[in-house]
Design a protein around this nucleic acid. Structure first.
Length: 509
RNA sequence: GGCCCCUUCGUCUAGCGGCCUAGGAUGCCACCCUUUCAAGGUGGAGACACGGGUUCGAGUCCCGUAGGGGCUACCA
């Protein structure tokens, strides 16, 4: 690399000479939300783009909200999405531990330092006092900010609980640089003295993330735009601690599909075009049968784009081009319909071996005994027909339902448009012996024979073919009929046709 | 309410003052192909929120209005 390129790049990410290090810092509050994963992905993309490190840190400073098993879920989501971690609770690393509840001393030390330097103070306000202030107007009124030291000592000696609050400048402006939006400015007068250390000795996010990001040498922070309002607070704390700040990028949030409100995991009433519930949690993407590479492509296409009017691109290519300053600052409605399309594109490209491996468990979970040889023959017919792995069940389950498991379709499926029970039975009755007598059961042979049969019998091709399809697959939509019958085998196909015919006979009487 | 951020087709977006009679994708609708459903092909409807400026020239810069979103906890 030439010297000018090196300079250009350092200007681009504007991190001085610091190595690029980003982190994903979720709270262990349960299943991972797709919004959080997107933040992780953007940070990871940036880290990989610049050959830096990507760190996982668990922010469990709120014991009340901590949910057991969350860390496993976080790792499961990240592993599935293909976001690899360089340092974290599982990987270890030189700046650990990577779980905040194991770093309490660090926060307390910094809090004490802030206290000593006059940047913070002990606040003895009780819950009742706080509630009253909130009711009266705009939050905490700084009543303990200028409490004489003696009084504070006395209250503490009395055993009164206290928190440590940051002394926010009372006037002036705080401005910061956001990689996505540029300069942002805030009036200090409108800001509060945030709690840094809670009465239980645990830090709040405001203190903890700063202490950790400093000690962990984090160079760039990607976080949701929800944090923008507290950005000035963080800037002031960084300054008070005397540490060099990382660069910040406040990522736009995902809105509900209708554009109203933040995408929530609670309100899953939103349905896609096909009426399916919209996936929001990481495991829902896995369960719904989306491919991780499709989800990566999908996620990185919201608020950022590859360029060249190119919608599908590999993660490796995205890494080559990703840039935080190119991220769109506007929030986006969750374009879930596009994921179905992208996923179908990816499924159509996956190797048949891999696709078979992905489909097998889905089928088995649905209760089908999956014959490997048959599965391998079915897969080629499926690739352009699946929007998600799940679709294999309604689309191709019938392939694995022989030997007594197959039931004749109901008449509303069996009887084609402009047909009735009598005509349908007639078609079946005529076709069965012909198919039974076929020496060559290959699709082309069947096709030709049935075309001739249609011609001879006076039915339209569609009427004959459609009836056969319904009888053999039990479905209105299916892979190609003759290919399907070929895979099913002559005997099983004939058996199903007879089953259908018999079901009609019963109906007629 | 206060503070902050945002605003191009229904949706995701391209556009960083003239290349825009605004491009792509998705979704939708036609048609073609066709053994259904898909896939694929072709075509169609569909947007610069509004009002002021700045400028020879504004989707692109500035201000205002409106709308949307976020924050406003000893949660993150």
């Amino acid at each position: 690399m030439s010297e000018s390129e090196i300079m250009g790049e350092s200007e681009l990410n504007d991190s001085g000479n610091r190595p690029v290090r980003l982190r994903y810092a979720p709270s262990p509050t349960g299943p991972q939300h797709i919004g959080g994963l997107r933040s992780a992905l953007f940070g990871w993309l940036f880290a990989r783009r610049h050959g830096g490190q990507f760190i996982l840190r668990i922010e469990d400073t709120d014991q009340k909200r901590s949910v057991p098993g969350s860390m496993d879920m976080i790792y499961e989501s990240l592993d599935w999405l293909g976001i690899d971690i360089d340092e974290g609770p599982r990987e270890g690393g030189e700046y650990g531990p990577y779980i905040q509840s194991q770093r309490l001393e660090l926060y307390q030390t910094s809090a004490r330092q802030l206290l000593e330097r006059g940047h913070a103070y002990k606040c003895f306000a009780t819950a009742a006092e706080l509630a009253e202030m909130r009711k009266a107007g705009r939050g905490y009124d700084r009543r303990y900010r200028d409490l004489p030291g003696d009084d504070a000592d006395r209250l503490e000696a009395e055993g009164r609980q206290f928190v440590i609050r940051f002394k926010m400048p009372l006037s002036g402006k705080t401005h910061g640089e956001d990689l996505i939006r540029g300069r942002v400015e805030f009036d200090n007068a409108g800001l509060q003295d945030a709690v840094l250390l809670k009465s239980d000795g645990f830090p709040t996010y405001h203190l903890a993330h700063i202490v950790d990001d400093h000690h962990m040498r984090v160079s760039h922070i990607t976080r949701a735009v929800e944090w923008l309002p507290s950005f000035p607070l963080h800037i002031q704390v960084w300054r008070a601690l005397g540490w060099e700040m990382p660069r910040f990028a406040h990522l736009p949030v995902l809105l509900n599909p209708n554009g109203k409100g933040k995408l929530s995991k609670r309100k899953q009433q939103f349905a896609g075009a096909d009426g399916k519930a919209v996936p929001v949690l990481a495991h829902e993407f896995m369960e719904a049968g989306y491919l991780p590479e499709a989800v990566r492509n999908f996620l990185s296409n919201i608020g950022w784009n590859y360029g060249d009017d190119q919608e599908t691109f590999s993660t490796a290519d995205a890494i080559q081009r990703f840039d935080l300053s190119a991220v769109n600052p506007a929030n986006s409605a969750y374009p879930i319909a596009k994921l179905d399309w992208l996923n179908s594109q990816y499924i159509a490209q996956v190797s048949e071996t891999r696709l078979a491996g992905l489909l097998r468990p889905v089928l088995e979970e649905a209760g089908y005994a999956v014959d490997e040889r048959r599965l391998r023959r079915v897969v080629p017919l499926l690739r352009v027909r699946l929007k998600s792995l799940r679709d294999v069940v309604p689309m191709a389950g019938f392939f694995f339902a022989d030997w007594g498991g197959f039931r004749a379709p109901t008449t509303d499926i069996l009887i084609q448009r402009k047909m009735d029970a009598v005509k349908t039975a007639q078609v079946l009755k005529g076709a069965i012996p012909i198919l039974e007598a076929l020496d060559d059961f290959a699709p082309d042979s069947q096709h030709e024979t049935m075309r001739n049969y249609a011609k001879a019998s006076g039915f339209k091709n569609g009427q004959v073919f459609g009836t056969l399809r319904a009888a053999v697959t039990g479905q209105k939509a299916s892979p190609p009929t003759f290919e399907s019958m070929d895979i099913l085998g002559q005997a099983e196909s004939i058996r199903r046709l007879k089953l259908a015919l018999a079901s009609l006979a019963t109906k007629e009487t």
